[in-house]
Simulated assay, not measured.
Amino acid sequence: MVKLVLLHKADSIYEDEPDRVYDFPRAYLKAVQEGVGDWVVYYEPVKAGPRGYFAVARIRQVIPKPGVEGRFLALIEPGSYLPFDRDVPRLREGRSWESALMADDGTVKSGGVQQLAVRRLPDGEFAAIVSQGLPQDLIDIEARRYEPRSVLEGGDAVPFERPVIERLTNRPYRDVAFRRKVREAYDYRCALSGLRLRNGGGRPEVQAAHIRPVEHQGSDSVRNGLALSGTLHWMFDRGLLSVADDGSVLVSRNKVPHEVVDRLIHPGGKLLLPSEERNRPHPENLRWHRENVFGQMELTGPAPWQ
């Protein structure tokens, strides 16, 4: 196994969905097959945008692309994809994170290897890039975000250095990373009510909801998330609400009183979307929620509005 850098740009002829599948030509088959079972870092090329390194995932399997000669698909391990908390610039103090991109004279190579869609990545360089994009103390960073002297702080104690792979597979860590990215994408505003509420200390009240739950092979991509208030999160998870392909909010009318809908849902009756298109809900995730959750759960106990 070997770790890889995979180049991705949204307007490519290759049909990539970073949290699901990576589409590539035969020229890279050997390298990608070497990466099966190991981790990859996604990279946005210079001409595609400013992000640099922006996410991590693990390859589960490589298969021929159905109906397309000479093309292959790297299937991403469900639940492994995680966007970086902060994008990692291509260069650090004028040097590339990847030693393969550096010339003997200390300058960054141009052309050639820079343009490879798949590059092998040594473990140490993988760890350095991921640690820059997903700090090991991210949970503490979030805890201290609105409370500078968090009760979690322990004086001058040295934080425990959690290994990179352990962090990437740790559910509490991933939940914090997902929450931070989803709330930021929606500008801390509920996508269904339109409200941006903060408590007395400035902490946003909006939550991050998975559209397709992780336990049902949903990813931690922002495209599988919605920023929702606590009540609307509860209703969405229980199938009382969903979203149509055109963004219209769907309501289980036999379970939710009209006056509740009027109070809670934005008057336009449509999902309020992130400004950046790449962060908007993936249609397949919304379809899965409509077909597997919406209107299908029996409610027990009192509803939040009762």
Results as ranks from 00 to 15, higher is better:
residue 116 L to G: 09
residue 289 H to M: 05
residue 92 R to P: 01
residue 171 R to C: 03
residue 95 R to C: 00
residue 38 D to S: 15
residue 279 N to T: 07
residue 217 Q to I: 00
residue 5 V to M: 00
residue 51 R to N: 11
residue 174 R to N: 11
residue 238 R to C: 02
residue 143 A to G: 01
residue 243 V to L: 00
residue 29 L to I: 08
residue 98 E to L: 15
residue 182 V to A: 09
residue 129 I to K: 03
residue 302 P to F: 05
residue 224 N to Q: 01
residue 271 L to P: 11
residue 300 T to K: 12
residue 150 S to L: 04
residue 180 R to L: 06
residue 73 L to S: 01
residue 204 P to A: 07
residue 120 R to H: 07
residue 122 P to I: 11
residue 297 M to H: 13
residue 113 V to H: 05
residue 264 L to V: 04
residue 40 V to K: 03
residue 30 K to E: 14
residue 162 R to C: 13
residue 285 N to W: 04
residue 162 R to V: 15
residue 18 P to D: 09
residue 234 W to I: 01
residue 130 V to Q: 07
residue 270 K to Y: 14
residue 91 L to Q: 11
residue 44 E to Y: 01
residue 121 L to W: 08
residue 78 P to S: 06
residue 240 L to H: 03
residue 299 L to R: 10
residue 167 R to Y: 06
residue 18 P to I: 13
residue 34 E to D: 13
residue 163 P to Q: 01
residue 98 E to H: 08
residue 152 L to K: 11
residue 273 L to P: 01
residue 251 V to A: 11
residue 297 M to V: 05
residue 189 R to F: 00
residue 171 R to H: 09
residue 276 E to T: 01
residue 127 A to Y: 04
residue 63 I to A: 10
residue 39 W to S: 08
residue 124 G to C: 05
residue 10 A to L: 11
residue 255 K to Y: 00
residue 268 G to Y: 10
residue 147 E to T: 15
residue 47 K to C: 00
residue 134 L to A: 06
residue 45 P to I: 06
residue 101 L to A: 12
residue 183 R to L: 14
residue 129 I to H: 05
residue 266 H to A: 14
residue 28 Y to I: 00
residue 234 W to P: 04
residue 303 A to R: 13
residue 56 V to H: 03
residue 295 G to D: 10
residue 161 E to R: 14
residue 162 R to P: 02
residue 88 V to S: 10
residue 191 A to K: 09
residue 9 K to T: 04
residue 69 E to G: 02
residue 182 V to G: 03
residue 57 A to N: 07
residue 144 R to D: 14
residue 82 L to H: 04
residue 43 Y to I: 02
residue 147 E to D: 15
residue 160 F to M: 06
residue 46 V to F: 08
residue 20 R to E: 12
residue 88 V to R: 10
residue 86 R to Q: 13
residue 115 Q to G: 04
residue 147 E to P: 00
residue 169 T to M: 09
residue 293 V to T: 12
residue 306 Q to L: 08
residue 175 D to E: 13
residue 241 L to M: 11
residue 114 Q to W: 06
residue 13 I to W: 02
residue 189 R to H: 00
residue 180 R to K: 10
residue 30 K to A: 13
residue 66 P to D: 14
residue 141 I to A: 14
residue 37 G to S: 10
residue 48 A to D: 12
residue 192 L to V: 09
residue 289 H to P: 08
residue 209 A to D: 04
residue 21 V to N: 05
residue 277 E to K: 07
residue 114 Q to T: 09
residue 236 F to E: 12
residue 88 V to T: 04
residue 254 N to P: 03
residue 207 Q to E: 15
residue 9 K to E: 15
residue 228 L to F: 05
residue 203 R to Q: 14
residue 249 V to F: 01
